[in-house]
Every structure is written in C-alpha cells, then in structure tokens.
C-alpha cells in the first residue's frame, strides 16, 4: 500500500545570519543511523553538487545550498506556489562521529552526507574466553 505524497510549505530561515543576500529556506531532512555510519539526507531541489557546501565547525554541521537564478532568465512568474531560494540548516553533532571520513553527494536534488562512526562508537563484539 503506497501513501499519497503531500507537498510541504517551505519554511524560511530567519534567525540565521548568512553572508549571501537573498532568502534562505530550511530543507526537510531525514537522519538515520546504521551500524557503520550516520546518514543525513536533505531535500535541496534546484541545487547541484557544485553549489552545495557542507561544513563542520566545532561540532556544528552547516549545510548550505545555492540555487541558480540563470534557469529563470526571461521568465515571468504568473502563478507560484513555492518560493525559490537558497537552503540553510545547521545541526549540533554528537562527539562520536569521525570528521575525517565525511562524504557528501547530491542526486536528483537530494544532498546525502555520510559520517562514518569513530572506532570507539561502533558496536564491538567482545570475545569471551573460557578461563
């Protein structure tokens, strides 16, 4: 049984400061955890891999995506439902993530960031020996 998909209104980011003028919006995200890694996926329609920035600064992960205005040249909006803008979202990360191994990619307007768990955070099987 497949559910019907609904569109959500974009929420503008107001409290954050950005060096880029123009309005920014908060992308919807999924965060999930596997035994090996923590994965974050964010909806950033209109953004490609060259205009996305993933930064880890003092345990704070910043995701930024910049839309291209070029695709809108000579077009006059006549009826609009969603705002066009950059994307911005920040997360405080837990300490057991390995900042060295972060990988990010963008596919069909979805940014996926993968953090390998640091060695001590991975579940370990402890060998019980007969004594």
């Amino acid at each position: 049984m497949t559910e019907e998909l609904n569109a959500r209104d974009k929420e503008e980011v107001r409290q954050e400061e950005s060096t880029h003028p123009g309005r920014s919006y908060r992308p919807d995200v999924d965060i999930f955890e596997t035994a090996e890694s923590l994965v974050l996926r964010a909806d950033v329609p209109g953004v490609d891999e060259s205009s996305v920035s993933v930064r880890l600064d003092d345990g704070v992960l910043s995701l930024e995506g910049r839309v291209s205005v070029q695709d809108y040249e000579n077009l006059t909006p006549v009826a609009t439902e969603y705002p066009i803008g950059n994307y911005l979202r920040r997360f405080q990360l837990s300490n057991d993530l390995d900042p060295e191994g972060i990988a990010a990619r963008v596919t069909d307007g979805v940014l996926e960031v993968t953090f390998p768990k640091s060695a001590q955070a991975k579940p370990r099987q402890v060998q019980v020996t007969a004594g």
Binding site: L5, R8, D28, V29, F32, E33, D43
Partner: peptide, 12 residues
C-alpha cells in the same frame, strides 16, 4: 537502520 529524524515523505 534507526531513524533520528524523519521529515521527508515517500509515496505516489
């Protein structure tokens, strides 16, 4: 997998 946050929907 266990979800920490789930905001993105799936469906038709």
């Amino acid at each position: 997998t266990s979800y920490h946050r789930r905001e993105r929907g799936a469906g038709r």
